[in-house]
């Protein structure tokens, strides 16, 4: 199954931990996970536990415009993309969860 996740809140919000745990659980069961970060959600790339999801095979894409606005530096393994990528994730997902 393909799971799509949208996260728009910053790391202080409990959404981040929820997304981390859901992503880990989904990957452990062999599901594909794609996360799109926008608004304050872009700050999550600086949270170690979040960025480590890349090593578990989670695909993370971030809104490059929101990242530029918030001066979030590029991170290896994370695509600095756009709403086009967000639409592609939503379009290809079997299930899509939004955390905002």
């Amino acid at each position: 199954m393909k799971l799509g996740i949208l996260l728009t809140t910053s790391p202080e919000n409990e959404n981040t931990n929820t997304v981390i745990e859901i992503s880990k659980a989904a990957r452990e069961q062999g599901h594909d996970v794609s996360i799109f970060l926008m608004y304050d959600g872009v700050y999550n790339v600086n949270k170690k536990e979040f960025a480590e999801l890349i090593n578990k095979g989670v695909e993370i894409t971030i809104c490059a415009f929101n990242a530029e606005q918030r001066r979030v530096a590029k991170v290896d393994g994370i695509l600095f993309g756009s709403q086009y990528d967000h639409a592609c994730i939503a379009n290809s997902a079997d299930r899509f969860i939004s955390f905002g």
């Binding site: 490059a64 415009f65 990242a67 530029e68 600095f80 993309g81 756009s82 086009y84 990528d85 592609c88």
Partner: peptide, 15 residues
């Protein structure tokens, strides 16, 4: 004149 667009618009159109 928008840097994020210069990376993403071509990539999306190629897609």
């Amino acid at each position: 004149d928008h840097a994020p667009a210069v990376e993403n618009v071509p990539r999306s159109l190629k897609n």
